[in-house]
Design a protein around this nucleic acid. Structure first.
Lengths: 218, 218, 218, 218
DNA sequence: AATGAATGAGAATTCATTCAT
DNA sequence: TATGAATGAATTCTCATTCAT
């Protein structure tokens, strides 16, 4: 594979595919157009990728690899969970602005057409963060950093849900418009404020203990 | 329009469309196949809907109308926010099981291909819950039911994000697989446990005040 | 046939067809649209006309009947040929303005699509004027009103050719534009001048004898 | 464009289109059939021509180019007008027999369906002959070769009308049948006689002066 | 008899994929 | 090996015609 293509050319082809898929969606993107834009012949493309699907998956892989490397930085940190949550939120904002198309690729597979790959892809893509977040939350609960009456897997899931929605809300058209409907166009670009509010949201979600409420309500 | 088609036939056609669109996505669904499955000729379909797009939008509308009527019940309730949150969570679970395809239709428009409609649809679809949730949260903050150092629009947004992800996680393939990756197949069907955990998550997210943490951390 | 339809309704339906066929051409005219515009159901239309073709032919017949009745007036005249030629030219101009659509219907059958009917239609439509013009010219030649070294059939043919082109040049889009290209937009509406010039053209075409030229050239 | 298609193949495709369009008319001709007859796939056809319309226009252009090149020979001649008229008449006869389909293509655009292109096409197609004929007639009038009490534009128009009808009468079904109705099947193939008669018709139309008639009539 | 909803064959067009050069 | 022209199956959409009411 790629015997003759330089790494750079490989990357260029994939990036062209990513741009096109992100822009039009898998089905409406045109392989011939992608090849032309990438400055290669369809023949080459089909030499390295069996079919459109395979090529899409390769584009997807590249997108997720980049997104993952960003995640890695966060994961290897040794901050406490709440500090880390804030950092992740800000990292997500940054990534959303810098790698819009990668996130759109990610979003693309969450829609119905790609049903077939769901199990395989979900496993590949989500395992790492699922494991990391779950362990983290479990540890934090043990340490008393956060409440301990929770299921770490579910809270990891909720946590990632919130982040995933944030990503999409910055990068994908529908989600972005929805963001505006909820908060007005102004907030969509006020990263600082959104970050501080979401941090609050997550912080208290993790920290508060139900009993406290009742206590205070007295 | 629809002079001869009974309401039932109308509904059957739309439901067939919904099933097909939810299963295959807009682009891979085939109008001729839908017509055949609905037991009508393509001609009829095109008599009532200008083109595939228009038909898809009609299917989408029907889906959202049903989903909205479920939401309405929650909205008209007079419970306090946290009680209501729990009810909504459980309603979402129920809806996800009963109206999987409607939710898939909703999910369908969040994907890239439908870029064109994003602004219009987001406005139409999200306005109601945005308004209701925001008002609710603002009131609750004023009443001291929840913390008051928050932006109601953003917290309404975060709240709906969590619910939206829950819906998709029950109904849409990729999200469902991801749910399993995070929590294992068992939890996906343990509605009771998931509901109680998510309620906790939301409850504390809304109630806790940051200062308390620091206090306890001492 | 037409047992129930009044003459007026019959006429209205045909006129609607004529308008539509003249506007769009046989193939692009839509039977359902015609029925709707005529205020009847397609069913009625198909009760009286086997198919689109038959209906078109009926519309054509009506058009030609009207055009023919105009011709009749000229034919029954007892003027000398040159006087008559001028009258016909002016009649053609008048008809072209008043019955544009009928002429367009006529033009419609001269185009390739209607190959099938050519022999039948030509016989039906052209016989009368062919006979009349030929006899006329033959008589005029015998009487010395016009040159006598001509074939009356061919000169009748040339004569009608000139008139046919005049009709089309006033009524049919392409011919009209061509008229403008040749003479400028101004002349297209200067009926008086065109008539006098065309009369000259025809008059001399019929009257002059070749030998005279050579004579004068000396 | 046409990188791989040889000139010959290009020509073959266009000729196939011309044959089909000439035979059936634009609307009844079928692109898939044309492709098959031309021994290519529809895909190729659509690679070189955006749509059916564009392809038709290309076929039309080819037809007119050929017809025009024939006209060119006549135009560059330096004969006196009457000599030239006869040559043109004979050229038209020859062209009509050799390039029947090209003339049918020309005829095709004079029918109602192609309304849209009328202005553009008329300008493109008729300008040259309009200019040439008009100038010619004006010069001839000045030189005393023909009568001088005429409008050169109108006489050029009448002249071309006569030629156009001759073309169609040899090439297009309806006109051909009409020709027979007027003159009998025998004359349609007696080119010599028709040419001599038409030459007479044109010659006298151009040469005679109205006053002469009255003179002779005395 | 009249209606117009329903039918479905047919036609234009697209584009993933192949393969001769 | 690379190219990109060629393929043709697949899909959307139209509209003449039918026929149940």
């Amino acid at each position: 594979m790629f015997e003759k293509l330089t790494e750079e050319k490989k990357a260029e082809i994939l990036e062209t595919g990513i741009a096109e898929f992100a822009e039009k969606g898998v089905d409406r993107a045109n392989i011939n157009v992608i090849a032309k834009k990438a400055g290669i012949s369809v023949g080459v493309l089909y030499k390295y990728y069996t079919d459109k699907e395979t090529f899409f998956l390769a584009c997807l892989k590249r997108s997720l690899d980049v997104l993952n490397s960003v995640l890695q930085e966060q994961i290897t940190s040794s901050d406490k969970i709440l500090v880390r949550a804030e950092k992740i939120v800000r990292a997500v904002q940054k990534t959303s602005r810098e790698h819009t198309n990668y996130i759109r690729m990610y979003n693309e597979i969450t829609s119905g057409g790609n049903r077939k790959y769901a199990p395989l892809l979900a496993e590949k893509i989500e395992s790492l963060s699922a494991t990391v977040y779950t362990r983290f939350i479990a540890d934090a609960a043990k340490n008393g950093d956060i409440r301990d009456d929770i299921d770490p897997r579910l809270f990891a899931f909720f946590f990632d849900n919130v982040l995933m929605m944030l990503q999409f809300s910055y990068s994908c058209d529908y989600y972005r418009e929805r963001f505006k409907v909820y908060c007005g166009a102004g907030l969509v670009d006020d990263d600082e404020f959104v970050a501080s509010q979401l941090t609050k949201f997550l912080e208290s979600a993790f920290t508060f203990k139900g009993s406290d409420v009742k206590h205070r309500e007295k």
